[in-house]
């Protein structure tokens, strides 16, 4: 993991859009209002979300925690535009993003980084990173390549641009994927348990560069995880989601100063927050487990 200097971090700031409208600092406020989602495939009625409401301020880093299958990913998919909602609405900077009568459509203003990683294995690193701007037609290929090179070299990935993702370590792959998202200058970055399958060392290095990228770009981040320590360490707010039907049961404001240091993991206030969350999540996990047993019986 390369240390990035402050001047280098400036370069990560996305260049303002061509039409002269500078990227306002207030961009990226997400408000999720009484969202409900009912899956009904072939009559099997599954209520994934019910009256799920939360507010994310522009530039805020929010982590959502909860037991597996609680609807965290459903909510992310709805925000991303992969899935529709059955009640409520979602606003992005006050404009409707998802409502009950719009059909879902994903877009580059809210890019997802996936749990298993979704870099195209058949494209090189540079082709992956430039894919968004080129396909949207916002940059020429040459411009995109130049921009991608700048961004990659700032996170210590200069020399791998012609490698294929399969040749990279999982940590590097995830870094490339985050850069591939950021080059589109999204308003919101949606991270779906991106570090789940990593070993401890890779994970902590990944936390470090994600935090550096976050402080450099100031993007709104919606981060799903079931690792409580990770959630507290990274986020401004940790929200606990209930088991199905999911809604936000508890919001914990993390008062730790930034930049976050690893020593904070042992601080008494960190441990107190973790204990607080463990209680809340455990309760939901037990409920989910019992519900699962009932379904099996």
């Amino acid at each position: 993991m390369s240390k990035m200097s402050a001047s280098n971090l400036k370069l990560l700031q996305p260049s303002p859009p061509q039409d002269g409208l500078a990227c306002r600092a207030t961009d990226g406020a997400l408000s999720i209002k009484t969202v409900g989602k009912i899956y009904d495939p072939e009559g099997v009625h599954v209520e994934a979300l019910r009256d799920c409401s939360l507010e994310i301020a522009a530039g805020e880093f929010v982590a959502i925690v909860g037991p597996s299958g609680c609807g965290k990913s459903t909510l992310l998919n709805i925000i991303a535009g992969f899935d529709n909602l059955t009640s409520g609405e979602i606003l992005l900077d006050g404009c409707p993003l998802a409502t009950t009568n719009t059909s879902p459509s994903p877009g580059p203003e809210r890019v997802v980084v996936f749990q298993q990683g979704a870099l195209f294995p058949w494209k090189t690193v540079i082709e992956n990173v430039t894919y968004g701007p080129v396909v949207q037609g916002v940059m020429s290929r040459a411009e995109a390549i130049q921009r991608a090179r700048e961004m990659l070299s700032r996170v210590g990935l200069k020399d791998i641009e012609s490698s294929y993702p399969g040749q990279l370590s999982s940590g590097m792959q995830r870094r490339v994927e985050i850069i591939r998202a950021l080059i589109n200058n999204p308003k919101v970055l949606l991270l779906d348990e991106p570090f789940r399958a990593m070993d401890t060392v890779t994970k902590s290095a990944s936390h470090q560069y994600l935090l550096e990228l976050y402080s450099a770009t100031g993007k709104t981040i919606f981060f799903i995880t079931h690792d409580l320590e990770e959630a507290i360490f990274l986020a401004d707010k940790v929200m606990v989601m209930t088991t199905r039907p999911g809604y936000i049961k508890k919001t914990l404001a993390v008062k730790l100063p930034r930049p976050r240091q690893y020593a904070m993991l042992a601080a008494p206030e960190f441990i107190a927050m973790k204990a607080d969350l463990v209680g809340a999540v455990h309760e939901e996990a037990v409920k989910a487990f019992e519900a699962g047993e009932r379904e099996m019986a």
């Binding site: 992969f82 994903p106 580059p108 890019v111 997802v112 195209f120 894919y131 396909v135 589109n184």
Partner: peptide
């Protein structure tokens, strides 16, 4: 997820 990623990217 490759389809989803491509659609996200436009």
């Amino acid at each position: 997820s490759y389809f989803r990623a491509a659609r996200c990217l436009g």
